[in-house]
Structure formats: structure tokens, C-alpha cells
């Protein structure tokens, strides 16, 4: 099955991004496809490469970057939500790119299911 994923919360403050990541890993392991992961609301903060959690904690941003590289996953960060929160191209972690909300709607149209991870 082709899944779209919407992440609406930032890293660490909320578990939404962790849960979305774990879902993506599990779905891929079962042979499903992740059509796109779209980051919206405070979820855009997941793309910030400047995040530096303590060494004994997971690095949420790096997890997404690694997964994207391994499975060629499209990680899209909403442009309007990003501008509000100071997320700019120069601080994007590898694998993330900035685009419009149309990418979320397109994921809804093209994927078999879209899952929302938020508050």
C-alpha cells in the first residue's frame, strides 16, 4: 500500500514525529511504500539541522534524514508554516525540502491512505 504521512508536531515536545517515524519504518519493513511525509504546523521544526539533542537521546531530525536516504522518501516541509517559524533552506537537514501545501493535497490524492500524526 502507498501511504502518505502528515506530521503536525515538532520533535521532543511531542511524540507525534517519533510515532510517524516508527510507523514509516514498520510500513517499509512490511513492503509498503511511503509516498511522502509532509511536515506542517510545528512539524516543520523536524527539518531543522541545527537541533542537537543530548548524546543519549535519539536525534529525530537525523532519523528522518537517514530513512529518506535509505528508502528515497520525499520529506516535504510546508513553506508558509516554515517561514512563520524561521525554517529556511539553509538550515534544512538532508532529505528535506520546502514546498507548498499542494504537496499535501497531492499526497491525499495519490496515496492509498494518509495518516495524521499530531496532537
Amino acid at each position: 500500500m502507498k501511504f502518505g504521512i502528515l506530521v503536525n508536531e515538532g520533535p521532543y515536545q511531542h511524540q507525534a514525529s517519533d510515532s510517524a517515524y516508527q510507523f514509516a519504518v514498520a510500513a517499509l519493513a512490511k513492503g509498503h511504500e511511503i509516498y511522502r511525509v509532509f511536515f506542517y504546523n510545528d512539524g516543520v521544526n523536524n527539518a531543522n539541522k541545527l537541533t542537537e539533542p543530548p548524546q543519549d537521546d535519539r536525534n529525530v531530525t537525523r532519523q528522518w534524514s537517514t530513512l529518506a536516504a535509505q528508502h528515497d522518501i520525499d520529506l516535504v516541509v510546508c513553506v508558509a508554516a516554515s517561514l512563520r517559524r524561521g525554517i529556511k533552506a539553509e538550515i534544512l537537514a538532508p532529505g528535506f525540502h520546502i514546498s507548498g501545501l499542494g504537496q499535501l493535497i497531492e499526497a491525499g490524492i495519490e496515496a492509498d491512505r494518509v495518516l495524521v500524526f499530531g496532537d
Binding site: 503536525n8 506542517y40 504546523n41 508558509a80 508554516a81 507548498g100 501545501l101 499542494g102 499535501l104 493535497i105 497531492e106 491525499g108 490524492i109 496532537d119
Partner: peptide
């Protein structure tokens, strides 16, 4: 901000 940003999604979905 959920309500405001949800409204943005509504308008884009309609534009599609």
C-alpha cells in the same frame, strides 16, 4: 495555531 493553519489546508484542497 491549529484552526488558522487548518483553514489554509482547506483553501488549497479547494484550489485542487
Amino acid at each position: 495555531i491549529y484552526a488558522l493553519e487548518a483553514l489554509e489546508v482547506v483553501l488549497i484542497a479547494a484550489a485542487f
